Computed example of a mutant assay.
Amino acid sequence: MSTEREGHTMGSDHEGVREMLGAWALGAVLPSDEPRLLGHLAECEWCAGEASRLRDTVRLLDGGDAALAYERIDRAATGEAAAYEDGGQEVRGRLLASVLAQRPAAPSTAGHAAPYAAAVAGLQALLRELGEQGPWSTPVVHDWDVHATVAHLLAADESLALRLGLPGRAPRGEPPRDLSWREQWAHRTAEVIAHERTHSPARTVAAWREQSAALLGAPQATDPELAAQATTLLGVRLPIADHYVVRGFETWIHTDDIGRALGRPVPTPPDPLLWRMVRLGVRILDLALADDSVSVLLTVAGHGSEGEWVLGSEDEPVAAELVLDPVDFCLLLAGRYDPGEVPRGLAGDERAARSVLERAARIAWL
């Protein structure tokens, strides 16, 4: 039995065939199912239209404008696509999601890129909840709203992308001369934010997502030997592997910024990834303290692990002992804690400990 509906025919095979459309768009439908599928498409205008749209989306993802493809997916999933009857919006969003789920998995990243991969996934999940008409103008941090914060991340990831030979996503003007790296960075992030203000939030998110996918697909994300090469980015010389960890750190911090602004909880990174960021943060802090005349024992404890490091001068006895939680330590490095207010344990010379905390807070460029 079949029932005629306005604009398309709902045959008895409609539900079963609809579940095969994602596989068909990928060219992965079973040969035994193909005659049944093609026969249904010849009779059902709605499914034929969906099949065509899914094939177009796969072509965009495979070799064309991935940003446009992702924007289409987001619009479908968040209700911005043209309305279909009989719950068609929900169906289309599910079908498009099934296409992505059935695509071959991207090459797995090496351990050094895992914090960035996890942070990207976390921000994607948060942004997916907002929708095209969501709270993009909500103030987040500095003078940025949600839209500008994503644009800032687009600019922040660009430095590593360009070093790896990947294209930039926003036009670049001639920077003023004789600027420090911090001034150059502030100029570039303002330039990218101004450019992205001319685009919709969905397009900015798509550009950021495309660039992050390119970074995670780069050989340096999967090959530790290639990632061992050192380069100077954002004022610090580190192996490329560590720059991936820095990208994960900043992406997580700004995801947390957005979550706090919107009242949406953002999970802490998994313990192994959190501790990878902690250890890198300690190394950077130690470099910053190398010329100081103080020596402080720093203990970071919690979230399944503990570490101790003597920071500062090698020629001076330890003047103070500091104990910090790993999340609080990361938030301090990100400039999200006032040095006098970060929860800590302290013994010994309070002035020496305060010097370390203040230097940690000044490292931030986020």
Score class of each variant (00 low, 15 high):
Ala151His: 12
Ser159Tyr: 13
Gly134Met: 09
His112Trp: 11
His147Cys: 11
Leu179Trp: 04
Val140Ala: 12
Gln124Lys: 05
Ala156Glu: 07
Arg177Tyr: 03
Arg172Asn: 02
Pro175Asp: 09
Ala161Gly: 06
Ala113Gly: 04
Ala114Phe: 00
Arg169Leu: 12
Leu127His: 07
Tyr116Pro: 03
Trp136Arg: 07
Leu162Thr: 14
Gly165Leu: 09
Leu179Gln: 15
Ala121Met: 00
Glu183His: 01
Leu160Ala: 02
Val140Arg: 01
Glu158Arg: 15
Ala151Thr: 12
Ala113Asn: 00
Arg172Phe: 06
Gly111Trp: 05
Ala156Tyr: 14
Leu164Asp: 02
Leu154Val: 06
Ser137Leu: 14
Asp145Gly: 13
Arg163Asn: 07
Val146Arg: 06
Leu130Ser: 04
Gly173Pro: 14
Ala119Arg: 03
Trp181Arg: 10
Pro135Trp: 09
His112Pro: 01
Leu127Val: 11
Pro115Met: 12
Leu127Ala: 11
Gly134Ala: 06
Pro135Tyr: 07
Pro175Gly: 03
Ala125Arg: 12
Leu166Asp: 03
Gly111Leu: 15
Leu153Phe: 09
Gly173His: 14
Gly173Val: 10
Leu162Val: 15
Val120Glu: 06
Glu174Cys: 05
Glu129Met: 12
Asp145Ile: 05
Leu127Gln: 04
Leu162Lys: 10
Ser159Ile: 15
Glu174Asn: 13
Glu129Ser: 10
Ser180Phe: 04
Gln124Thr: 13
Ser180Trp: 08
Gly134Leu: 07
Ala117Arg: 08
Ala125Phe: 02
Glu129Arg: 15
Trp144Asn: 03
Ala170Asp: 07
Asp143Trp: 03
His112Gly: 02
Asp157Cys: 10
Ala161His: 06
Asp145Tyr: 06
Ala118His: 03
Arg182Trp: 01
Leu154Arg: 10
Gln133Thr: 12
Leu154Asp: 11
Leu153Asn: 07
Ala148Val: 08
Ala151Gln: 07
Glu183Tyr: 03
Gly134Asn: 04
Ser159Leu: 15
Val120Ala: 07
Ser180Ala: 00
Trp136Ala: 12
Pro176Thr: 06
Pro135His: 08
His152Trp: 13
Asp145Trp: 08
Trp144Phe: 14
Ala113Ser: 09
Ala119Met: 03
Thr138Gly: 00
Gln133Asp: 15
Gly165Trp: 03
Pro176Leu: 07
Gly122Asp: 14
His152Tyr: 12
Arg169Ile: 02
Pro176Val: 02
Ala113Tyr: 06
Pro115Val: 10
Gly134Pro: 05
Pro175Ala: 13
Glu174Lys: 14
Val150His: 10
Arg172Leu: 12
His142Asn: 00
Leu153Cys: 13
Ala155Met: 11
Gly165Gln: 08
Asp178Gln: 09
Ala161Trp: 03
Trp136Lys: 05
Pro167Ile: 05
Asp178Met: 04
Asp157Gly: 15
Gly173Tyr: 11
Ala121Leu: 11
Pro175Lys: 07
Ala170Asn: 01
Ala118Gly: 07
Pro115Asn: 04
His147Ser: 13
Gly131His: 07
Val140Glu: 07
Gly111Tyr: 00
Gly168Glu: 02
Gln124Met: 01
Pro167Gly: 00
Ala155His: 11
Ala161Thr: 02
Ala118Pro: 00
